[in-house]
Design a protein around this nucleic acid. Structure first.
Lengths: 249, 249
DNA sequence: CCAAAAGCAAGAGCAGTGCTCTCTAAATGT
DNA sequence: ACATTTAGAGAGCACTGCTCTTGCTTTTGG
């Protein structure tokens, strides 16, 4: 469903009549996202200003509101862009990774880590505080936002299938879940079209949140200033530990 | 060093001459933190406004600057307050918990979870995006900020000692670390006065970041709107999984 | 082909923000 | 008792998001 939506949207965009006016509008829109990302990169979110973007465009501030109805919409635009970018990076890494679930998870984790370190402010935008109590409209951000976790769920499902039932059961004791949680999980698994079991998907969700937390701790410098220098080494070790949790050592 | 600093500061505050003016000043300071927290609770950080606090105090905005030199200092005040509050909650829970490392970790995790759910905006202030690219001055925030992780490190060290070397080595394969990381870890262990090994402390740091990530995912609603309803159940399961990672199942 | 409609951009303006400056009055230290 | 420090008021600057009105250009329909 999500994929189809994205594809039709792209097709529509491509086969647009391409009247000069619409074309110019699209160029300006892209320019706005560009300028927004640039502004984000140097000042962080929260300092994102419609007026500054207007200056970048060589317009007066009110003119920008022809393209973006309010500041929150601008934020949403950048969030969607960032989600897509991150998911692209992960997809690319997974395409070049091997077949083993552990390798694939580590490739995913490394790709996310690298992207976060390369774009700390955009990472902040995705996994930090929602700015100014602004909550991103799910219908527009979830499309890209769920792409990576869907990948992780698939890897977890694969790991469970790959190690065989006996082996998996040995290393990973079954977690006990309430019916409500089980129903929620199965709904989401169906949504992502992943064939997995409750245990694997719970591990996947936990590892997912854990991975985000680990990367955030690094990006936000919460482990202390001196930890930043060896951050990538620490992250690599932590990735291995999370792989143990996801797959079993 | 940190502890001594905090203690002398407290002593100084307590034995203050208590001249009526100084007393009034302290009252106003406390009132500012109160109002700040209230404002935080209803609008989230970022909407924190010096002028609104001035209105709450019944002053004109410029008068507030007698107490707080700028907005960032106000934020720092609230961050320190929140760190202390959270650490107090954890300490309280640990005081009532049993002796087993697993119980103690689960008590710590539960206390953090409950606090975060009870004070989502303050949690956001601590572990979300630094507001407006503001980075908290380490010298004032680290004191309270490290109290909880120090507790976790102690639990991890205890778990390692408790299960015995053979048992621990069986469940937890030794992680390979670079000398730089090892040096960093030992420095911090010395700082917290915790007697632990590299493996345990790396697991502790990983579990710590993972725990923060899991709680943040819940507080920020990153797992989807329908996950919030069963959030506490999910968090409980995830806590068990992290306990496995920290201690071994 | 030409008028009507729609879209783009400018400009003024409002309410809000953080923060600085000057000024008055009161409390304080000597 | 007098000089000094201090709390607070008030005006004001530069900035923000956002709205409304006003010209001008492009697109479109008859």
């Amino acid at each position: 469903m999500w994929n189809n939506g994205a594809m039709t949207a792209e097709a529509t965009t491509t086969r647009t009549p391409a009247t000069p006016r619409a074309e110019a509008r699209e160029r300006t829109m892209r320019r706005i996202v560009e300028l927004g990302n640039a502004q984000l990169a140097e000042c962080g979110p929260g300092a994102l200003s419609v007026r500054e973007i207007a200056r970048g465009l060589g317009m007066v501030s009110s003119a920008v509101y022809r393209y973006v109805s309010c500041r929150d919409e601008l934020l949403t635009l950048l969030i969607v862009d960032a989600y897509g970018d991150l998911a692209d990076a992960v997809d690319e890494a997974l395409a070049e990774a091997g077949q083993g679930p552990r390798d694939r998870f580590l490739a995913l984790a490394t790709a996310m880590t690298r992207w976060a370190i390369a774009h700390p402010e955009r990472w902040t935008l995705l996994y930090g505080t929602p700015v100014r109590g602004y909550d991103a409209p799910a219908e527009s951000t979830n499309v890209g936002g769920t792409r990576v976790i869907a990948r992780l769920l698939a890897i977890a499902a694969d790991a469970q299938g790959g190690t065989g039932k006996a082996g998996a059961a040995g290393v990973r004791p079954a977690v006990r879940v309430t019916p409500a949680v089980e129903a929620l999980l199965e709904r989401h698994l169906a949504e992502f079209a992943v064939d997995s079991d409750v245990d694997s998907s719970l591990r996947a969700v936990t590892v997912w949140s854990g991975l985000v937390g680990i990367i955030s701790a690094h990006v936000f410098g919460q482990l202390g200033a001196d930890a930043v220098a060896v951050g990538e080494q620490i992250l690599e070790i932590q990735g291995e530990l999370l792989a143990d949790l996801l797959i079993g050592s």
